[in-house]
C-alpha cells in the first residue's frame, strides 16, 4: 500500500525553486532514503511532507487522504527526527519526553511507560534527570530519535539521524531503525551518509537541485549508473593525455577524478590491456552508492 504520495510537488522561495515537480510514491513499511548534496531540497521536501511548511503547488497524499485537509490526523501518527537539535533545554531528559507525549495526548501513565522504554532502548535511562545541556552531542541525537518514537509512529521521518554520532551510537540507532521494519513502520530517511543509505534503505532517491534524479534500490542504481565494478587508473601528468585519448578511442565510460581516472560499466579488465605500463597502477573495486551520487550530482560543491 502506498502511504506517501506526492504529485508535481513544488516549493519556491521567491525565485529559488527548492523542490521542483517531485513525484514520489513511498510504500508502507519500507525504508525510503533521500540522498542529495546540501541545498538539494531534501529538507524543504521533508518539511512539506511533515505538514509544517505549505506547498507552493502540487499535492501530497498521506494515509489515503490529502495532507492539507487532514494534517492533524497525519501528524498524530508521524514521528519526526529533525536535523537541528530542538530538544527543550528548559526541561530534563525525562520531562522532554513526557511533555512531548502530552502534545500527542498520550495519557500520563502510558507516557511514563513509553518514556522509560525509549530511554532504555537508546541507553539513556541513567540520564533521566539530566538537563539537556549536560548531555553530549551523541546523547542529544539519541534522545531526538527516542523522542520521535514516543507516539508509536506509523511513519518516521528522519533528517540526518546519525550525524555526529560515534560508530557505537550509530550502530545502535541503525539497529533500532531496522527493528522498526518488523513493526511495519515506514521510514523516510534523509542522509548524506551513503553507507547508512545502503545499509538501511529498501529504496533510495537521489535529489539534486530540487529534482529527483533517479530512484531505485541501491544495487539497482549502482548497476544502472556505474556498473558493479569500478576500475581506477592512477595518472601522472605525462601520461594523462595519452590515457584519456585511448579511453575515448576504446569507447569506455570514464571520469577523471583528481589524479585518478574511474572507468565504469566494465566487468573484466580486457578492454584496458596495454593502457598502463605497470599493473600496480590499475585497481578494481566494488562500486558504491557514493559513485552513483557523484555521477548524478557532480563533483563540484553544490552551494
Amino acid at each position: 500500500m502506498t502511504i506517501i504520495k506526492t504529485r508535481n510537488l513544488t516549493k519556491k522561495f521567491g525565485d529559488l525553486v527548492a523542490v521542483d515537480d517531485v513525484n514520489l510514491e513511498i510504500e508502507e513499511g519500507e525504508c525510503f532514503g533521500l540522498l542529495g548534496p546540501n541545498g538539494a531540497g531534501k529538507t524543504s521536501l521533508i518539511r512539506m511532507i511533515t505538514a509544517v511548511s505549505p506547498l507552493t503547488s502540487g499535492d501530497i497524499w498521506m494515509l489515503d487522504g490529502d495532507l492539507r485537509s487532514h494534517s492533524q490526523q497525519v501528524k498524530a501518527v508521524l514521528g519526526v527526527v529533525p536535523q537541528l537539535d530542538n530538544l527543550d533545554p528548559d526541561l530534563t531528559v525525562f520531562q522532554n519526553l513526557m511533555t512531548f507525549a502530552r502534545y500527542f495526548d498520550i495519557p500520563k501513565r502510558e507516557a511514563h511507560r513509553r518514556s522509560m522504554e525509549v530511554l532504555r532502548l537508546f541507553q539513556l535511562e541513567d540520564r533521566c534527570n539530566s538537563r539537556i545541556r549536560e548531555l553530549s552531542g551523541g546523547m542529544r541525537r539519541r534522545l531526538l530519535v527516542a523522542r520521535g518514537l514516543i507516539n508509536l509512529p506509523r511513519i518516521l521521518v528522519l533528517d540526518e539521524p546519525t550525524i555526529g554520532l560515534d560508530p557505537q551510537a550509530k550502530y545502535l540507532v541503525w539497529h533500532k531503525l531496522v527493528e522498526l521494519k518488523s513493526q511495519g513502520v515506514t521510514r523516510l530517511l534523509c542522509t548524506q551518509n551513503m553507507e547508512e543509505a545502503t545499509t538501511l534503505c529498501d529504496r533510495v532517491a537521489v535529489m539534486h537541485q530540487g529534482k529527483i534524479m533517479s530512484l531505485g534500490t541501491a544495487a539497482d542504481l549502482i548497476s544502472r549508473y556505474v556498473g558493479n565494478k569500478i576500475w581506477e587508473i592512477e595518472l601522472n601528468s605525462e601520461e594523462k593525455g595519452k590515457i584519456v585519448n585511448e579511453l575515448e578511442n576504446r569507447g569506455l565510460d570514464f571520469e577523471i577524478v583528481g589524479d585518478k581516472v574511474h572507468i565504469f560499466h566494465l566487468e573484466s579488465g580486457e578492454s584496458l590491456n596495454g593502457l598502463v605500463d605497470s599493473p600496480e597502477k590499475l585497481r578494481r573495486r566494488s562500486a558504491t552508492l557514493e559513485d552513483v551520487f557523484f555521477r548524478l550530482t557532480g563533483r563540484s560543491l553544490a552551494e
Binding site: K75, P82, F104
Partner: peptide
C-alpha cells in the same frame, strides 16, 4: 531553542 518548530511537528 526551536521549541515552536518541535511542537508544530506534533498534532499542534
Amino acid at each position: 531553542q526551536k521549541t515552536f518548530d518541535a511542537i508544530i511537528a506534533t498534532p499542534l
